[in-house]
Design a protein around this nucleic acid. Structure first.
Lengths: 201, 201
DNA sequence: TAATTTACTACACGGTTGTGTAGCCGAAGT
DNA sequence: ACTTCGGCTACACAACCGTGTAGTAAATTA
């Protein structure tokens, strides 16, 4: 597809793709090298080690995403449906779940952004940090559970059609209260009971 | 801790714990055997292969969770904060993300349960399936992103305190609309634009 | 043109993984 | 008492992993 790139860049692209698909541990150096159409030694020559390659991918993805700044975390600007961006998303989300620094950086950025957004609204929230964090992971979940969503919707959510269904659903989900005040009260007492109760270790 | 069990049961328990923690690929047979205090050969003797062990764990976890039926998927009955249940949750969620049949079964159950719940409310939803699916993955996300949440909340979310903060946040999140009708309308047009647009393949 | 660095490959090395094999030991059945 | 059989272990094996080494061809530099 894109073989008019530097070998180094090809390796990076292949690594991002396979890391995103199978995880860092799941993707082998040899597979990455083969996909980039180079020897596995060249990979080592350019990036030193597998972790070096991971770091390079993280850094590149982070920069790339920074260029596109708002488009990543913002909800209503996801309309620019680009395969490249989707791949970046998958890679970074995978990195985030694998606990890599780049992933944590992205998540921290999402938290910060969420807090700014929350401050601009007049929502009643008792624990800002927790609220924003929960909201952030929920936003991400549509991507982390990509395979599950595709199965549930009976179609690849990478395609615009299913993607749209997901966005539509999340929109409706966030624009109306899902539980009634009575149910909320009931849940509240349950939570209070939990919080007050001693932990049985 | 619990060494008065059959060796077979000890192996199963150890496998579930390590599978939940490191994933099926991440946990080695030898580690599981060591944690169960048996030889790695015995594991093979009882379960045939690693996949056999995985299947056995899936089946056991599925049965176990069926016994406790509602407690797993239901929102406001999570107050029975039990370490065993928490472990089961982690294992099944991990299985779900790894694409195992047991995980898919659990997810399907959540979808079915969600559709029943949705029918009992008077929420306005354009795409039932998508709505329920998105809601399901969002509910799960608090557990799948456990490490991330712990970092954001600056404390292990397995502990009742942080757990309570999470539940509280999700409660507040679901009991009020997060975006205003104007914002919803704006997002709606964005989604429509996406859905109508041709995919540039 | 000669020298030195750079891009790149082929191949071997320990270590770990899942799996296979041979055998020990104690209990149950006859 | 002897056999049988399941629980259980020790050990070997092939495959695969990340890594290290040696060497070649091409580009850069002087």
């Amino acid at each position: 597809m894109s073989s008019d790139l530097t070998a180094r860049a090809r390796i990076r692209d292949a690594a991002i793709e396979l890391f995103a698909e199978r995880g860092v541990d799941g993707a082998t150096i040899r597979d990455i090298a083969q996909q980039a159409d180079v020897s596995s030694g060249l990979l080592r020559h350019h990036f030193g080690s597998k972790e070096g390659l991971r770091d390079a991918c993280d850094e590149w993805a982070l920069n790339e995403v920074t260029k596109l700044s708002g488009r990543f975390t913002e909800f209503n600007t996801l309309d620019g449906f680009d395969t490249r961006i989707a791949l970046l998303q998958r890679y970074l989300i995978r990195s985030t779940m694998d606990g890599s620094p780049a992933g944590q950086a992205i998540f921290d950025r999402m938290l910060e952004y969420g807090e700014q957004w929350l401050a601009s609204t007049d929502l009643k929230v008792s624990d800002t940090r927790a609220f924003v964090a929960v909201l952030a992971v929920m936003k991400m979940s549509m991507f982390t559970m990509r395979d599950l969503m595709s199965r549930a919707l009976d179609g690849d959510v990478t395609e615009p059609k299913q993607w749209g269904r997901m966005l539509q659903a999340s929109l409706e989900l966030f624009s109306q209260p899902l539980i009634t005040p009575e149910q909320a009260l009931q849940a509240q007492t349950a939570i209070d009971r939990l919080t007050a109760g001693k932990d049985k270790s």
